[in-house]
Write a protein that binds this DNA or RNA. Sequence first.
DNA 1: CGAGTGACCGCAA
DNA 2: ATTGCGGCCACTC
Length: 107
Amino acid sequence: MIDHLYTDNFKAKVYVVVSNIPYGRLMTYGDIAGYCGIAHAARIVGGLAHFGPSDLLWHRVVNRFGGLSSGFPGGREVQAQLLSQEGVSCTAYIVDNFKDLRWQSQR
DNA sequence: CGAGTGACCGCAA
DNA sequence: ATTGCGGCCACTC
């Protein structure tokens, strides 16, 4: 439920969705874009992530295959480390139980 | 104001 | 089954 946090910019929506990802949970760019209203804007989410603030929990955001994306501050190893600290098993920069850890938003 | 880019996804050969 | 290509929308320079 992110209606009360709605803003004029699509960017803000993405930030809200990302901020609402619970601990030890993962989400894909496509899903985030879909919950924002456009399923074809997966690239936008990635683009915003690069320009967006580092305060958000982007380390819980991965691509459709459950693999860690590049461009993360410090590198994929850092992101994998963060996920590992949250109980997420990562092997070769790929989430093992991604299918099970994938959090499906309530919209 | 215009053009290019992007931490992607889906489909086609 | 795998590999390659294009497309989509928003943001930045």
